[in-house]
Design a protein around this nucleic acid. Structure first.
Length: 271
DNA sequence: TAGGCCATCTGGTCCT
DNA sequence: AGGACCAGATGGCCTA
């Protein structure tokens, strides 16, 4: 009874396959949950599994470092920590989440700079222990993973007039970037208060090819902040929409969004 | 077309 | 014995 040995083996194998499928689906569901809570989440531009894990690790590390130091982080250092070891598209995605130009927080590679020098951001928090992404250590895959070489970060920029925008402070540029998908991930809240309704936006890497500049959506409350995103001026037409003092009031942002902008602003500028 | 990413199948190992 | 877990193999899809 029960059929032939071969038949029973087939049934057993099919059951095992089904279980394995379900198991992998569960694993993927968990990974999807993780995608939604790391800084960048876009329905259209999904992080790969490995990039999700890397970004999550960096995020945890960065938040831990904030807690450990008890200080508000510098935005650029924070983003650098987030992007360590990530591939170029993911780095661009993270930058897009923060409306940053990746070029502004990645190391410039000048001809004078020896290639073996540690990447900028390897000691994102001076005075603290320096962090090395696994991708930057031996035994792990080399590029595109595990390198922050700006040459590969930006090699997708195809002959755009990028340099002309760069003088717009040294941190953030504004842009006329196309609309993003509203991400569902929580904002980069480094004080432990996740603002679930905060709206930040993701630019698909494909869009970065068209324009490597990001609109500034985070508030401009603190005067005299060292971060470029809080100043106005520059050559970009969107600059005229920015306000140095008080909450930013452009693009029809809601009161709630402005409050959130102020919160983020406070996070990055309290000292 | 090559390379990256993914889902699925499969056999091995360990645990209950 | 059966299930969970793991890693290798394979083929499909997509993009540069």
């Amino acid at each position: 009874m029960g059929g032939t040995i071969e038949g029973r083996f087939k049934v057993r194998r099919m059951k095992a396959n089904a279980r394995e499928r379900n198991r992998m689906h569960g694993l993927n569901d968990a990974l999807e949950s993780l995608r939604k809570v790391v800084p960048c989440y876009s329905k259209t531009q999904k992080l790969s599994k490995i990039e999700t894990l890397r970004l999550a690790k960096n995020y945890i590390w960065a938040l831990s470092e904030v807690l450990r130091s008890g200080k508000a982080p510098d935005l650029m250092n924070f983003v650098q920590a987030l992007c360590k070891g990530l591939s170029q598209p993911t780095t661009n995605l993270v930058a897009g989440c923060l409306q940053l130009n990746p070029r502004t927080f990645l190391p410039e590679q000048t001809p004078d700079l020896p290639a073996h020098l540690p990447p900028a951001g390897a000691a994102a928090y001076p005075g603290h222990y320096s962090y090395q992404s696994p991708g930057l250590t031996a035994g792990l895959p080399s590029p595109p993973y595990g390198t922050m070489d700006p040459s590969h970060i930006f090699h997708q920029v195809k002959g755009q007039p990028y340099g002309s925008l760069e003088p717009f402070f040294d941190g953030v540029m504004v842009s006329e970037a196309p609309p993003f998908d509203p991400p569902l991930s929580p904002p980069l809240s480094i004080n432990g208060n996740f603002s679930s309704s905060f709206k930040h936006e993701v630019m698909a890497p494909a869009d970065y090819d068209k324009s490597f500049a990001f609109s500034v959506h985070y508030g401009a409350g603190a005067a005299g902040g060292h971060n470029a995103m809080y100043a106005s001026g520059g050559t970009n037409p969107r600059c005229s929409e920015m306000q140095v003092d008080g909450l930013m009031g452009f693009d029809g942002h809601t009161h709630h969004e402005r409050l959130m902008n102020a919160q983020l602003n406070a996070i990055f500028h309290e000292s």
